[in-house]
Structure formats: structure tokens, C-alpha cells
Amino acid sequence: MLIALPLLLIPVVLYNIVILFGATGGGGMAEADAILRDPLFSVPMTSGANWNVGVGDLILFLSLILLFFELLKSTSSQKVAIVNHALSLIVFVVCLVEFLLIRGFATSTFFLILAMVMLDVLAGFIVTIIAARKDLDFGGA
């Protein structure tokens, strides 16, 4: 049943931990942006520039990887996939509420995570509908 859990819940939880527990003050926008953008490490590039990688960048990178696996999972027609779609929809609603109502979540990083969760929900439902339609077509022949 663990396979039914949406993988994009991981970056959402990580973002919540970083913002809610990493903010020492009131958790305002400036502090949230600083936490996400402050470089964890820097990579020297061949051009002579330094590529600064922050917490927000790492969370987004993880989100993209997990979105790929979520899209692969959405192509399965198992009964677990329907539970996964429903849980993904719940994660989307929670993310949307956080983005709109909680200070510190109205950042570009969280918006992109929200967009990935929304794409996961849409892709899951669309793939399920198309697969069900194909099953119906084959059944009628």
C-alpha cells in the first residue's frame, strides 16, 4: 500500500520542514527567500563563474526527478493507481492552501513544486481516462 503514496509528497514535506523549522523569526517572505536561496555549496564552472546551489534548488531538482517517476506510475492500470491519484489530489489541495494562505510559502520555489503536483494530478487522471476508454473499446469489439 506504500506504493499508493504520491512521491511528490517528499519535496512538499521537505519544503515544510525547511520553512517552518528553519525560520527563526516570524517566517516572513524575506526570511523564506533567504533560507531557500542561500548557497549550500558553490561549483566552479569552466567559464570562471561560480554556480551557487541552495536548498530551494535541491528541493526543485528532487521534485523533478520524483515527477518523472510519478508520471511513470500513472501509466499503470492497477487499482492502487486510483488511490494514488486521490492522494495526489489531496496533496495538491494542501499545497494550494499553503501557497495562498501561509506566509513563507508564496515563493517561486513552492509555486514550481505546486505546479509539479498539479501536473501529476492532471497526468494521472488523463492517463487513467484514456486507458479506461481503450479498455472499453477493446471490450466492445
Rank of each mutant, 00 (worst) to 15 (best):
M1Q: 06
L2I: 10
I3T: 12
L5I: 14
P6E: 06
P6Y: 03
L9W: 01
V13T: 13
Y15V: 09
N16W: 09
I17M: 06
L20R: 12
F21K: 11
T24W: 01
G26L: 12
M29L: 13
A32V: 04
I35W: 02
R37P: 00
R37W: 00
V43I: 15
M45G: 03
A49E: 11
W51S: 11
D57M: 12
L58V: 08
L60A: 09
I65L: 14
L67K: 08
L67Q: 11
F69V: 04
F69S: 11
L72C: 12
K73P: 01
V80W: 08
I82D: 08
H85G: 13
S88H: 01
C95G: 14
V97N: 07
E98L: 15
E98R: 15
L101V: 08
I102G: 00
R103C: 01
G104S: 08
F105Y: 14
A106P: 00
A106T: 01
I113E: 08
L114F: 12
L114N: 08
V117S: 11
L122P: 02
F125V: 11
I126N: 10
A131V: 12
D135Q: 13
L136N: 11
G139V: 00
G139I: 00
G140R: 08
A141V: 13
A141N: 08
